[in-house]
């Protein structure tokens, strides 16, 4: 096995082009488990730790956060909870403090596990993945990024440089079910983001299908419902029946399986409950801030 340690981003891309089978390692919280348990023996490891820019973020003029691929979750929780509330909530549920000090969104995307906790908030906020290779840079909409169980849209010579995430313009929530009160991989998870300016609601479902996915029918339903009832304008109370229906549609969007962590039926059920609750939380927040602003 080789251990490749590029010092700059350009070098990293060159190395990846030369060794397409080299496995990038950022926080190592996925890669090292595979190595320690002999599940994987790559020809080479490509260490990204020395590339400083991957640990930084910038705010663009349009308020989009360009989050370096290796920024650890603990930084997102500390520094970006206002701009990226959904992702920060998801980040707080990842593993333990020690894992959050190393694990990164770039790593979550690289692994593309359906259970990754960054995925639902990224889907709900409409993020874009900045992938690069010596051939150039591509911006991959998050909706096109996940291709299958632990498969993503990266080409063998590509690396994730950053994730572009629009700053929140409304409340966002994330909830995940696990059978322990901390340090647990998602049995299933759900994120919702209100986009009041666009009068849009977006969602993300985790660990309940081969890939993270949005609940499109539920989104369409709630969009229409909010429009039709004039709730965006009135900022009135969201009827419980609407939230329930939303939950049912979210559950219907999932395609879960039975495994040691939970049954398919439970996953569907839990998604419906989480979707209903988180929608109400965000809506009530929206009303409260709306009133405060008024």
């Amino acid at each position: 096995m080789e251990f490749l340690r590029p010092a700059t981003w350009e070098e990293a891309l060159a190395v990846k082009a030369q060794h397409p089978s080299a496995v990038p390692i950022a926080g190592g919280t996925d890669v090292m488990v595979d190595l320690n348990f002999d599940r994987h023996r790559p020809d080479a490891l490509l260490d990204l730790n020395r590339i400083h820019e991957l640990h930084t973020w910038q705010i663009a003029d349009d308020d989009t956060v360009r989050l370096g691929a290796s920024v650890p979750y603990s930084k997102i929780i500390d520094a970006l909870p206002d701009r990226l509330p959904g992702l920060a909530l998801g980040a707080r549920t990842v593993g333990s403090p020690q894992i959050r000090n190393r694990g990164s969104v770039g790593g979550n995307l690289g692994g593309a596990s359906p259970a990754g906790d960054a995925h639902p908030p990224l889907l709900a906020s409409g993020a874009t993945v900045e992938a690069a290779s010596v051939r150039g840079t591509r911006l991959i909409p998050i909706d096109d990024f996940y291709l299958g169980v632990k498969r993503n849209a990266l080409e063998p010579d590509e690396l994730i440089r950053a994730i572009h995430i629009p700053s929140a313009t409304g409340p966002q929530q994330f909830a995940k079910v696990g059978t322990r009160n901390a340090m647990v991989i998602a049995v299933c998870s759900f994120a919702v983001a209100l986009h009041p300016r666009a009068r849009d609601v977006r969602t993300g479902i985790g660990s309940a299908a081969p890939t993270p996915r949005r609940a499109s029918e539920a989104e369409a339903f709630i969009r229409a419902e909010l429009d039709d009832t004039g709730l965006w304008t009135s900022a009135g109370e969201l009827p419980l029946s609407t939230a329930k229906r939303f939950g049912e549609l979210v559950a219907r969007a999932a395609a879960p399986i039975d495994d040691v962590r939970g049954s398919a039926a439970y996953r569907r059920h839990a998604l419906a409950v989480m979707a209903r609750r988180t929608l109400l939380w965000t809506w009530n927040d929206h009303r409260a801030t709306g009133r405060a602003a008024a």
Binding site: T93, A175, V177, N181, V184, M274
Partner: peptide
């Protein structure tokens, strides 16, 4: 949430 079922996973704010 640390004092609630689900803990850090943020599944309830008291509901249920």
């Amino acid at each position: 949430v640390r004092e609630l079922p689900g803990g850090l996973s943020n599944t309830t704010h008291g509901e249920g």
